[in-house]
Design a protein around this nucleic acid. Structure first.
Length: 554
RNA sequence: UGCCCGAUGGUGUAACUGGCAACACGCUUGAUUUUGAUUCAAGAAAGUCCAGGUUCGAGCCCUGGUCGGGCAACCA
């Protein structure tokens, strides 16, 4: 277990600081804004923040960054908490930036008193114009030189609701000519007469991200405030506020966000997919949200493994979704119960098997874990096999059923195809086969060796179910790189529903949390849409399929 | 005409902080297999963006370029 793994740059920083005695322990935080559901990118951040604290004996706070009342909802708060728990992490404290509104207000007053903040009456357009451009210095606002007394009075009036939205803002007095645009007198507070999901109507002024995040970090004594690359330019401001306020000196570090092939990873785009009905909801199994991958059947273990494998660095990346699928298969292979399910049935009559006879065969629940035992599988004269497990004119290297050919029925007998029955249209509708009684699984004395083993299900015992097959949501690797509307690249065939498949009877006892491997078909999990009359399975991920590759090669 | 990040096989991440580039996914081939799965074995694939410099020695340090990304929401 203690295999030497190299440290990522953040672990290295922490380890060095701990060694140097800069800190005796660390505190991190995971700070989602409750305006949407968590996705795989958040999983990376969660694993990083919680993982760092776990590894170095610190703790992690869950802090909702709820400073914008118009986009935030309690529904999202609950969803986020649920997702983090599901991933397997425990936060130290559940906190909200809104818990600090009074404190933040005091901080603002402190800065006004120091002559480092002022109330600006300009419109957002005017203020934007004064900011200049990246290559051109900004100009001072006419309100920049207001007296401390006047600023104090105005700011207090802003709080008391004297002004309408947009009428005034509070700005930090930094430097309108600063090369970093974020330092050109950034906004600290804006007026929003809006109902907040936690503070209700107590406030009509709300702090901006830059005047809430670092301050919240300081209040909580966060040692390492880890965020994504796009916040790099904010760091100077982050430090400036902390310095001027003379509060706990938290530090910000940045890492590259997760991008994955064939999907999008921005709340804005995901929200669009939901709102415009391109998917059925935030938890549509094709989505990259945690609620979706959970519904689809991905395990928290596999996601944590994935996050571990992708590493943490500062360069932009595009991770092959295949790596995630590999992690999912790797875990599912170990825990999934094996079942046989025929998707596209072809009837097979075993001519030399007695009419009306039924015998119980036994199959391993999971060859990777013998402790899971066996399940009973009924065998009869009439069974279903998969249409594509028969070829009238077999392709080269095809070793399944074909006229005169033999295959093993998994956990049962070897059969030989004797006769092909077709309808008027020439479509194969039935196979007449003979079975080799001595080839019974587990007690095979036939001495026969066959190349193919296929799955099957007894026609009389088959349980029907619906199966939902998922493919990539988009049909281009790098969706973010494409021109035009990203929705043009949606894969129209990302969902395929098979309304009736035929499963062996053991499937009836399936419960929601169980994972299955439908032999040769992939990994599956019950969908919450299931009802007693109709059970529904989601395909979590396919099995690796070398034969499909062979076929494609021609 | 600015400031800030970054650049290592197809992808992602490493390289004991200057000692002759590793791991994983993917790919290829073979073995095993009552899942064309799993497992196992072997292999192809980068000479580290470029040019100089320092050094016995540079992916790591220095200089200058090139390329990619970010920065002007009363969003976070």
């Amino acid at each position: 277990m203690t295999e030497e793994k190299s440290l990522n740059f953040l672990e290295e920083i922490v380890e060095n600081e701990l060694k140097a005695g800069t800190y005796k322990s660390i505190i991190t935080r995971f700070p989602p804004e409750p305006n949407g559901y968590l996705h795989m990118g958040h999983a990376k951040s969660i694993c990083l923040n919680f993982g760092l604290a776990l590894k170095y004996g610190g703790k992690t706070n869950l802090r909702f960054d709820d400073t914008n009342p118009v986009t935030e909802e309690t529904e999202y708060v609950d969803g986020i908490k649920n997702d983090i728990k599901w991933l397997g992490f425990e936060w130290s404290q559940e906190l909200y930036a809104s818990d600090y509104f009074e404190k933040l207000y005091e901080f603002a007053v402190t800065l006004i008193k120091k002559g480092l903040a002022y109330v600006d009456d300009g419109s957002s357009e005017e203020i934007a114009k004064q900011k200049g451009t990246p290559t051109q210095a900004g100009t001072d606002s006419p309100y920049r030189s207001r007296s401390i007394e006047e600023n104090l009075k105005l700011f207090s009036e802003m709080r008391s609701g004297k002004y309408r939205d947009g009428e005034k803002v509070l700005r930090a007095k930094v430097d309108m000519a600063h090369p970093n645009m974020h330092m050109r007198d950034p906004l600290m507070y804006r007026i929003k007469h809006a109902h907040h999901h936690r503070t209700g109507d107590a406030w009509c002024i709300y702090p901006m991200y830059d005047f809430a995040h670092g301050q919240s970090d300081a209040i909580e004594n966060i040692t390492h405030s880890i965020c994504t690359l796009e916040f790099i330019p904010h760091r100077a401001l982050y430090d400036w506020f902390i310095e001027k306020l003379e509060i706990y000196s938290s530090h910000q570090y940045e890492f590259a966000r997760l991008n994955m092939t064939y999907t999008v990873m921005s709340k804005r785009k995901l929200l669009q997919l939901v709102n415009e009905g391109h998917v059925r909801g935030w938890d549509d199994p094709r989505m990259p949200t945690l609620s979706a991958v959970r519904r689809r059947g991905y395990t928290p273990e596999s996601i944590r493994e994935f996050c571990d494998k992708i590493g943490v660095a500062k360069r932009e990346n595009l991770i092959d979704v295949g790596l995630l699928e590999f992690c999912v298969r790797e875990h599912l292979n170990k825990i999934a119960l094996r079942r046989m399910v025929v998707f596209d049935p072809l009837k097979v009559v075993i001519t030399n098997y007695p009419d009306g006879k039924s015998e119980m065969l036994s199959g391993e629940n999971n060859p990777e874990d013998v402790s899971t035992g066996n399940r009973d599988i009924p065998f009869t004269k009439e069974i279903y096999v998969e249409q594509d497990d028969f070829m009238e004119v077999p392709a080269k290297k095809y070793f399944r059923l074909a006229p005169g050919e033999m295959v093993r029925l998994k956990s049962a007998y070897i059969i030989k195809c004797e006769e092909v029955i077709k309808d008027q249209a020439g479509k194969v509708i039935e196979l007449r086969c003979t079975y080799i009684p001595e080839s019974r699984s587990g007690s095979d004395t036939s001495g026969l060796k066959v190349k193919g083993t296929i799955h099957w299900v007894s026609l009389a015992h088959a349980v029907t179910a619906e199966v939902r097959l998922y493919d990539r949501l988009f049909n281009v690797e790098n969706v973010g790189d494409m021109e035009g509307d990203f929705k043009e690249y949606l894969n129209p065939d990302s969902l395929q529903v098979l309304s009736t498949v035929y499963a062996e009877p053991a499937i009836k006892s399936a419960i929601l949390d169980e994972r299955f491997q439908f032999l040769r078909k992939g990994y599956f999990k019950l969908d919450p849409d299931s009802a007693s009359e109709k059970i529904v399975f989601n395909r979590t991920v396919t099995l690796k399929d070398m034969w499909a590759k062979e076929v494609k090669k021609g």
